[in-house]
Design a protein around this nucleic acid. Structure first.
Length: 267
DNA sequence: ACGGATGTTATTAA
DNA sequence: ATTAATAACATCCG
């Protein structure tokens, strides 16, 4: 679900289906994900706008509006988008549409639905992408950050490396699953302090991070198609290390369940 | 029935 | 300023 590769996949889907379309109506099925005090005001900003471009930074998808502003889509723990022709909607099974929260009806006969099962998603209007990044203090995207910046981010912190990787203010895009994947593939303990890692280890992390994310993006974040040596297939609390067969350990870092091999991933 | 889940934010405290 | 711990958000799944 929605870490960087998933959001990039949504972005591509959005671009293929909903770009250069003008919003005729905004349907609010559940306002929770808007976190917006004034729904009318929100609708007014979107209505009659055209979706002209998409940008993704980390787990955030931005949709540029003509004539003004951008729409931020964040999916939280669960979420998706789905495009239909208007006449298809009534015929869709309830299990498909059950968690649709917001719908954009275009002046073509298309409809884009924003799905959020747990309502942890957020949709916000911003004047520009940069305003949003500045105010939310969003870190560089995991596929954009350069090696020297990455080294600086890691080495300037005493925190556990896993907590740094998950901190969207430092690097944006990695979530719990990919952070564990990355640390396993680089054989680095999630408990290692950032400032205690060797530069060579951080360089390895950076290269592997790019590699893993690119593979995932190329496979449209479809786990079923991932290389079979990926850690996520072994990442279970009762699991064993695919490399050495040692029982995997579980701990909590950065408020998130962390699973790693105590033998392969040295501190 | 209860605990946990791929995410973020506010609050509080050290 | 940085870090860490905790709760909250809302729902589904096993």
């Amino acid at each position: 679900m929605p870490e960087l590769p998933e959001v990039e996949t949504y972005r591509r889907y959005f671009s293929l289906t909903s770009l250069n379309q003008t919003v005729k109506e905004v349907e609010i099925l559940d306002a929770t994900i808007l976190r917006c005090p004034n729904l009318e005001d929100f609708v007014k900003k979107i209505k009659c706008s055209t979706f002209i471009k998409t940008t993704r930074i980390g787990k955030y998808l931005f949709v540029h509006l003509y004539p003004r502003g951008v729409l931020l889509l964040h999916f939280g723990m669960t979420g998706d988008i789905r495009y239909n022709r208007r006449e298809e909607l009534p015929n869709l099974a309830p299990i498909i549409t059950r968690h649709d929260r917001i719908r954009f009806y275009f002046d073509s006969n298309g409809v884009l639905s924003i799905i959020s099962q747990r309502k942890f998603a957020r949709i916000e209007w911003w004047p520009s992408v940069q305003d949003c990044i500045n105010i939310r203090k969003l870190g560089k995207d995991a596929l954009e950050i350069e090696l020297n910046e990455f080294i600086e981010v890691i080495q300037s912190s005493t925190r556990a490396i896993k907590a740094i990787l998950l901190d969207q203010h430092r690097i944006s895009g990695l979530g719990n699953l990919y952070a564990d994947e990355l640390l396993f593939q680089t054989q680095i303990s999630p408990l290692s302090s950032g400032n205690q890692l060797f530069t060579s280890q951080i360089e390895k992390l950076w290269k592997k991070m790019r590699k893993i994310l690119k593979i995932a993006v190329d496979l449209a974040a479809d786990y079923g198609k991932f290389p079979e040596n990926f850690f996520l297939f072994s990442r279970k609390i009762e699991g064993v290390c695919p490399r050495c067969n040692t029982k995997l350990e579980k701990t909590i870092i950065g408020q998130r369940t962390t699973i790693f091999c105590p033998k392969c991933q040295h501190r």
